[in-house]
Structures are given as C-alpha cells and as structure tokens.
C-alpha cells in the first residue's frame, strides 16, 4: 500500500488503557474506495485500532493514543481538531445493530438534525436508505418504530444513518456477526456497492467474509506483553492464497488463534 492513494494513514500508533498498552507501533494506510479488512485473534487490538480511526477511544476513560492518524493531511489527534467533526467524515457501524427507539425516518435523519443539516431532509433520508439497500423494504413504513425491523434490516438502517451525514470513510466493527447468512449476504453486497463512493475499514472474525468483501487485508496479533501489533498487510488475494508470514499462514489456516 503506498501512502499516495491513502485516504487515511496510521503512523506508529500505540494505544494505552491506563498502564496497559493495547496496540503498539502500528503503521498502516487505507486506500480510497477500497475495503480493508482487519483480521486477527481475539484481543489482538483490531477493534481498538478501528476505534482510533475516528477518535471513538476518546470515550474510553484513561485511553491514551501515541502516534498519528492522518486524514486530509491532518493528524486527527491534533488538539485543535474537534472529534465530532472527525466523526462526520469518518462514520462507524457497530457489531450489534443499535437503532434508536424512534421511527425509521428519525433514525436516518438524526445525524442530519443534530448537525443542523435540515435542508431537503426527506430527500437525504431516501438517498441514504437507497444507498443502504433498504429503501424498497421500508418506504411505506417510514414512521414505524425502527425496532420492528429484522436484525439485518436494523443493521442496514444503522448504515443508512451513518451514510446520511455523507462521510468519506465508514468503519465497521463485525457488522454481520449478529446476522443470519441472508442478512450477512445483504451487508456484504452493500459493502461492495458502497466502495463506489466510500472507503471502508472492517473488523471481522470471519475469514471467509474478509476474503469475500475486502480488497486489502491487515493481520494483527497479540505479543507476549498482550499488546496488539501488525504482522502483515497487503492485497487480500495475496494474504489468503500466499501469505508472506508464517504467523498469518498459521492463523488463516486455523492452526492457532
């Protein structure tokens, strides 16, 4: 991965929770309009790394970040940067669908309203729901409570909610792990479609999912001091067919982890 096409770059990143170092010295670039999968055994720091990419770790008490996360030529950890602004550009979708107990419409409109983007709100909601491949299923029931949707629909609603504020990058933390195979397929096809306009970084435990949806893959592991580090990254085809590092090979073939 060259830094040239990178829309987001992590440079020598370490994250501490109090005394404990959760990840250490990770440098990695994310290319525009690509899906990058972060894989690795539990506890290797994938989700920590993902949450650093839009300052979600700010919400964790005692979390401390060293190194840089560069977006638009700026370190997002620069003290002058407003984390809320960062999250407008770099959105996140979580493992469990977490719609608000509000109407379908209000869920999607939420980000727009709190950011004062209330022009053409109907249009923006429809566009987001279409982009999230949910519009046809919900267009006649926009005022129903979002909790009436199936798990897969709820997750696509959360994606629509993220898309509504038109971010450039979408972070996804195990977005399909709580879904059945049909819901999973819908999310995976959606991820492929979204790369036309967005850059996606996805954490997944599902090796086949990483192989199916991503263009680039980064493999992380936990060191003896329990800090996560980057073992290898590169094109997904290379990582899954012919990894360079024995540790990657052992992990993806199920010999450990």
């Amino acid at each position: 991965m060259t830094d040239n096409d990178a829309v987001l770059s992590v440079r020598d990143l370490s994250v501490y929770y109090g005394e404990f170092r959760a990840i250490k010295n990770i440098s990695l670039s994310f290319q525009a309009n690509r899906v990058t999968a972060l894989i690795g055994p539990s506890g290797c720091g994938k989700s920590t790394l993902l949450r650093c990419l839009n300052r979600m770790n700010d919400l964790v008490p005692q979390a401390r970040v060293e190194g840089e996360v560069v977006y638009s030529q700026q370190d997002i950890y620069d003290p002058q940067i407003d984390p809320a602004q960062v999250r407008l550009h770099i959105g996140m979708v979580f493992q469990k669908p977490n719609p608000f107990p509000k109407s379908i419409f209000d869920n999607v409109a939420f980000g727009l309203k709190i950011n004062g983007l209330t022009n053409n709100i109907d249009e923006a909601v429809e566009k987001s729901l279409r982009s999230a491949a949910l519009w046809d299923e919900v267009k006649d029931r926009l005022n129903e409570n979002a909790m009436t949707l199936s798990g897969g629909q709820q997750q696509r609603l959360c994606i629509a909610r993220t898309l509504a504020v038109e971010p450039e990058i979408i972070l996804m933390d195990e977005p399909a792990s709580a879904l059945d195979p049909i819901g999973t397929l819908a999310i995976e096809s959606l991820m492929r479609d979204l790369t036309e306009k967005y850059t996606i970084v996805v954490v997944t435990h599902n090796m086949q999912q990483a192989a199916r949806v991503s263009d680039e893959t980064a493999f992380l592991m936990m060191d003896e001091d329990r800090a996560g580090y980057l073992v290898e990254s590169g094109k997904t085809d290379n990582i899954f067919q012919n990894p360079k590092d024995e540790r990657t090979e052992a992990y993806i073939t199920g010999r450990f982890g």
């Binding site: 090796m207 067919q241 993806i252 073939t253």
Partner: peptide, 9 residues
C-alpha cells in the same frame, strides 16, 4: 473446509 493459503494451494 473453505481452505486458505497452503491448504488451498
């Protein structure tokens, strides 16, 4: 098995 890496090869 959906083999990967050396297994697949």
């Amino acid at each position: 098995q959906q083999p990967m890496a050396t297994d697949l090869r």
